[in-house]
Computed example of a mutant assay.
Amino acid sequence: MPDDDLEAALAGSLAARREREVAAAGTFAGPHRDDLLIGAGPADLRREGSQGEQRTAALALLLAARDHLRERAARPILLLDDVLSELDPVRRRLLLEAVRDGGQTIVTTADPAAADALDQPPDALVRIEAGTVRG
């Protein structure tokens, strides 16, 4: 569906449900209510994928959304909280390289060696040790 048609369809759908949703103090439809199947070939990653495969697929969707926003608006801010823990070293490096030039990205991790896989150091690295911020 073209973007212009989608916008009109969503606006009409929202208007039709507005009174019921206000009365219920909730929403009855939207992307947060939809099921999403993420697969790799014929496999449903939710049922058959490893934690790393599931995390990689979710990150791929986030990066695609970031790229989509970047094409249509300003550079987005991407917050990735402890996403490296379930990725192997190769996937860690690929993810960290993928977010390097895509806008402002903040990655948190409990692994002090997480940035060691990079060919170039991050633009900024902040360590918190025993409650103290170290630059």
Rank of each mutant, 00 (worst) to 15 (best):
M1D: 12
M1L: 12
M1A: 11
D5H: 11
D5K: 13
L6P: 01
E7I: 15
A8P: 01
A9S: 10
L10T: 12
G12K: 00
G12Y: 08
S13K: 09
R17N: 09
R18Y: 12
R18A: 13
E19R: 15
E19C: 11
R20K: 13
R20L: 13
A23K: 13
A23F: 09
A24H: 09
R33G: 09
D34S: 14
D35K: 14
L36Y: 08
L37W: 09
L37E: 06
I38W: 08
G39I: 03
A40C: 13
G41M: 01
R47H: 07
E48C: 03
E48M: 01
Q51L: 07
Q51A: 10
G52I: 03
G52D: 08
E53C: 03
Q54F: 06
R55S: 08
L62G: 09
L63F: 04
L63E: 07
A64K: 05
A65T: 14
R66C: 10
D67L: 09
D67W: 04
H68Q: 11
H68S: 12
A73K: 11
P76E: 10
P76S: 10
I77K: 12
L84E: 01
S85W: 02
E86P: 03
V90L: 03
V90Y: 05
R92H: 03
L96V: 00
A98R: 02
V99R: 02
V99D: 04
R100C: 02
D101G: 11
D101S: 09
T105Y: 03
T105I: 05
T105D: 06
V107Q: 03
V107N: 01
V107E: 03
T109G: 01
T109M: 01
A110K: 00
P112G: 05
D116A: 09
D119T: 08
P122N: 09
D123F: 06
D123C: 09
D123S: 14
V126T: 11
V126M: 03
I128E: 05
E129T: 11
E129L: 07
E129H: 05
A130S: 15
T132N: 04
